[in-house]
Design a protein around this nucleic acid. Structure first.
Lengths: 120, 120
DNA sequence: TATTCACGAAACCATTTGGTTTCGAATGCA
DNA sequence: TGCATTCGAAACCAAATGGTTTCGTGAATA
């Protein structure tokens, strides 16, 4: 439907219930509304609304299976948050920010080391 | 005043105006209310309220100088956001997450992100 | 078939939020 | 001294938010 409101990522994660929903979906990979709402004291309808907000922000996807609607985490939009954060990193975490900046700057596809290597 | 509401970091950054305020303070290091409010179309009082929200969240500090109140960025509380984010990083940015995890593990300030070790 | 289950839409409600204008108190300055 | 500047508190307002209950529909099941 893509209605008017259109929540962004910042708004979507502002609510504790919605963050908890994301956490649950991170664990279980796919869950229907009722299963999710069992983790809260609020009504199923309220949880459903929160899920729609997350969906608006692109943080979850819905998929109808039989009579249930299953939700799945879609973490990619959090990149926007990460980008925003990275701008402020130098203001408090300056220890390794340069190294991390370099690491994240060039992305030569799989440069991850195999063994446990201590930097420093 | 530090009333009941007590805004957290997630709420504080949810508003675009407040994010813009943080951005301005990142550039200028210290600014009074009027100077800040000149960047917006809303009233000085409204900006002042936003600043109080940021102050509640610990993201700015205020300091009275003569008849003006100067605000300064305090980025440290964003660490909480960073920690929260790091938990979800592996769900979309898995290219260098291992290396970055090792790098950040060495930082005394960086608490190890909690969560299940469901490494793909 | 009849019933139960899963869900969303709708109507509704209280509180929060983001904004305004007004006013008064300090502070700086002519 | 007198005036302008800077700001916060207060009162107020409209809209958004987070919640509820009720009801209808479609899918599974006894």
């Amino acid at each position: 439907m893509t209605a008017l409101p259109k929540y962004d990522v910042f708004q979507a994660i502002a609510d504790p219930t919605r963050r908890e929903l994301l956490s649950l979906l991170a664990d279980q990979d796919e869950l229907p509304v009722t299963a999710l709402s069992n983790n809260f004291s609020i009504s199923r309808t309220a949880v459903s609304k929160h899920l729609h907000v997350l969906s608006d922000a692109g943080l979850v996807t819905e998929r109808k299976v039989g009579r249930e609607t299953r939700y799945r985490l879609q973490a990619a939009p959090l990149q926007e948050l990460k980008d925003w954060l990275s701008y402020y990193e130098r203001f408090w975490d300056n220890k390794l920010s340069l190294l991390k900046h370099l690491v994240e700057a060039d992305s030569p596809d799989d440069a991850a080391p195999k063994g446990p290597q201590k930097m420093e």
